[in-house]
Amino acid sequence: MGLRSPRADLVGLVLLAGLGGLFAIFFVLPFLGLGERAASDGRVWELATSEAVRRALTLSLWTSLLSTLLAVIFGTPVAYWLSRTRVRGRALLEAAVDLPIVLPPTVAGVALLTAFGARGLVGEPLAEMTGIRLTFTATAVVMAQLLVAAPFYVRAARSGFAAVDPQLERVAYTLGASRVETFLRITVPQARGALLAGIVLCWARALGELGATLIFAGSLEGRTRTMPLAIIDAFERTSLGLSGAVSMSLILLVVAFVVLVLFRLATPDAPDATAARATQADR
């Protein structure tokens, strides 16, 4: 690289600062708009406390928390296995796990319908034998969220487990700890940061789930209409309108912000902080 004049350096810096500034403005403006609208529209508070919004929020919260819990329960063993196995075709398996991250959620919704719908692969015999129909129920909401959001947790957990030195586990075995005990006492605490990050990502994705839920669970008020669906609905019908959408958006914004702050507080020793401490100790 040739010598650069201080002048060229300055131009570069200004350019970078300008780009960064524009990017920041782009991110801030929509939220400013939301706030401005809420302040000027007198119906926002009234709508936020309405029965329809309250029910949508309750449904969104418990379904997203339940699907996150299920993702953790079922996804953790899979993630651990993926992080330790050297089985042939592991790359293929990992790609399959990641698939719902890449696919549009509407595809996931259609796929769910073909499997668990009234005339689906499993749905039809299930309905015939037990009379249970999954579509258009809260169960369907949870299933849609699980399919779309769980891969985020599995992915994060897998890389978290992979970063734990297997030597630690092997030494724990020689100290008499069973595999399960070793996993709970050594591996999980080491991967704590990654697991929590995965949980938050998974929950956020479940909370925002729209496409798959709409196709597989529908948008039935009080039963399957989650917050994102209610916001869509507010546009389609005139009853709530833009004011309703704004008020619900604000609610989701606050919920998301509170959760993120709580998450930061819960992980004072995120992976980067731990690494910094370790390097300090080495000196």
């Binding site: 030195d165 630690l168 092997r170 030494v171 075995y173 020689t174 008499g176 700890a177």
Partner: peptide, 13 residues
């Protein structure tokens, strides 16, 4: 778990 040996690795772990 049941061999009852002490095992110290190079990286200490």
């Amino acid at each position: 778990q049941q061999r009852n040996v002490g095992y110290v690795v190079q990286e200490l772990a």
